[in-house]
């Protein structure tokens, strides 16, 4: 069983808030009642997630629930407001500069918008070779070979490496992004909606590429997506987020066959599948609440058909409902429903 391998990377009690600290002038204005306090966005709230070596963890949830923020914190692009990220058993903050450098390079991110992630003024070759050259990964005189190798690995024709990003289609640009990330020889990739911007037929190509690379290079993925179909296909384990918290976490078959949390169940009712008969669309009632002032207690209670008084006051904790299957819902404390 995979379960025995220690986590490669682990988020422990991560919170991340956005919103600027008031400066002196703002403080005075606040005192005098001339200004309203700056709203604070609680993008993620006390989230823990561990990812084992070689595993693909899918992270799903609606827009604005904090998937990208969690991905960025784990990838080390932004620091958490609270909590720790543990890399191979050690707190990333406690590493010495050299180890921290290595850990940072070993974790890379593939972004949603393949164009925005490439510097429009640099050629493909420069884009791919920049980081490895800076970090001395390229043998002397071997730059061309090095670049070609990684471009080919990502399914990009190296003869076109002299061109610029705007000369390529979305799928090709995403391959360049992948080649660039691979070129620093990472162990762990955070893919933030990496196929969402691509056409259906190109999406399949890039997903296949990700899966092939995983086998060849022994990669570990955190795969952020709102597309349940994609997540179901490629993940070993799935974490479901709602408004800044992970509400359920389980192996992929468990989630799709025996989902526990009411939100997951609502979400799964809408997995896009091709069906040959016309069918009524059912809907989860209610609007997405705002992360500016999330509801008290269980964040899902305003939309939950099973909400009880307790849900409005008390935050449900994640607990194991089956081996490896965690869910955060008060219903699990009830004797039997």
């Amino acid at each position: 069983m995979r379960d025995l391998t220690p986590p490669l990377i682990e988020a422990r009690g991560i919170s991340r808030r956005f919103g600027s600290k008031p400066d002196l002038a703002a403080k005075i204005a606040l005192r005098l009642g001339l200004a309203k306090p700056q709203p604070i966005v609680h993008a993620i709230d006390n989230v823990s997630l561990s990812i084992r070596r070689g595993e693909v963890v899918g992270l799903v949830g609606e827009s604005g629930c904090g998937k990208s923020t969690l991905g960025r914190v784990i990838a080390g692009i932004i620091p958490p407001s609270e909590g720790q990220v543990i890399w191979q058993g050690r707190d990333r903050e406690s590493l010495n500069p050299k180890e921290r450098h290595a850990a940072a390079l070993a974790t890379q991110m593939i972004f949603q918008n393949p164009m925005a992630a490439l510097n429009p003024r640099m050629s493909i070759e420069d884009i791919v070779s920049e980081a490895p050259r800076t970090h001395g990964l390229v043998p002397k005189g071997g730059r061309q070979d090095y670049v070609d190798r990684y471009l080919r690995l990502a399914g990009f024709d190296p003869t076109m490496k002299g061109r610029y990003p705007h000369q390529f289609s979305g799928g090709q640009r995403q391959r360049v992004n992948i080649a660039r990330a691979l070129a620093v020889q990472p162990d762990f990739l955070v893919c933030d909606e990496s196929v969402a911007a691509l056409d259906v037929s190109i999406q399949a190509q890039v997903i296949n590429l990700f899966m092939e690379l995983r086998e060849r290079l022994d990669l570990t993925y955190l795969f952020v997506s709102h597309d349940l179909g994609v997540v179901e296909h490629i993940s070993d384990r799935v974490a479901i987020m709602y408004l800044g918290r992970i509400v359920e976490e389980a192996p992929v078959e468990e989630v799709f066959l025996r989902s526990n949390h009411p939100y997951t169940q609502a979400l799964l009712a809408e997995v896009p599948r091709i069906e040959l008969t016309k069918r009524r669309f059912k809907a989860v009632e209610g609007e997405l609440p705002s992360p500016l002032n999330p509801p008290n207690g269980c964040h899902f209670h305003p939309r939950c058909p099973f909400a009880m008084d307790r849900c409005r006051i008390e935050v449900p904790l994640k607990r194991e409902v089956a081996p490896g299957h965690l869910s955060a819902c008060h219903l699990n404390d009830q004797p039997t429903v």
């Binding site: 960025r72 692009i77 940072a104 890379q108 991110m109 918008n113 925005a116 920049e130 980081a131």
Partner: peptide, 26 residues
């Protein structure tokens, strides 16, 4: 705020390089 700058950061490129190679030309 664009992602290519974030990417450059996550590749641990030196600050001056991000400033003059990535930010400046754009």
């Amino acid at each position: 705020e664009k992602e290519y700058i974030e990417a450059a950061r996550s590749f641990r490129l030196p600050g001056w390089r991000i400033l003059f190679r990535h930010l400046l030309p754009n």
